[in-house]
């Protein structure tokens, strides 16, 4: 919320253990995470994903 640009996202110190492998979201990623039209599509997609895993079943009759 307070991040204004990509440089503010993290403190990057070269040649430290942290800098050897890291991942942090870009400004574009942060924008899409809150962009409502895109998130509405994601909401539908998430529900499909959840239904997919629920369709794999939970409790089953032992003979199945």
């Amino acid at each position: 919320m307070e991040n204004k640009n990509d440089d503010d996202l993290m403190e990057y110190v070269p040649y430290t253990s942290d800098s050897r492998s890291f991942i942090a979201p870009t400004k574009y990623t942060l924008f899409t995470r809150l962009f409502i039209p895109w998130q509405l599509i994601k909401f539908a997609y998430y529900n499909i994903k959840m239904l997919k895993i629920l369709s794999k079943g939970s409790g089953r009759f032992m003979d199945e």
Binding site: L34, I36, L54, S58, G59, R60, F61, M62
Partner: peptide, 27 residues
């Protein structure tokens, strides 16, 4: 004997990890 089974090694889980509660700024 019990006739139904549900092993954590066989069923899945959906975890939703809240990172902020707001209908427009949450995540």
């Amino acid at each position: 004997e019990p006739t139904y089974s549900a092993s954590m090694a066989e069923f899945g889980a959906i975890c939703i990890t809240s990172m902020g509660k707001s209908m427009t700024r949450g995540s």
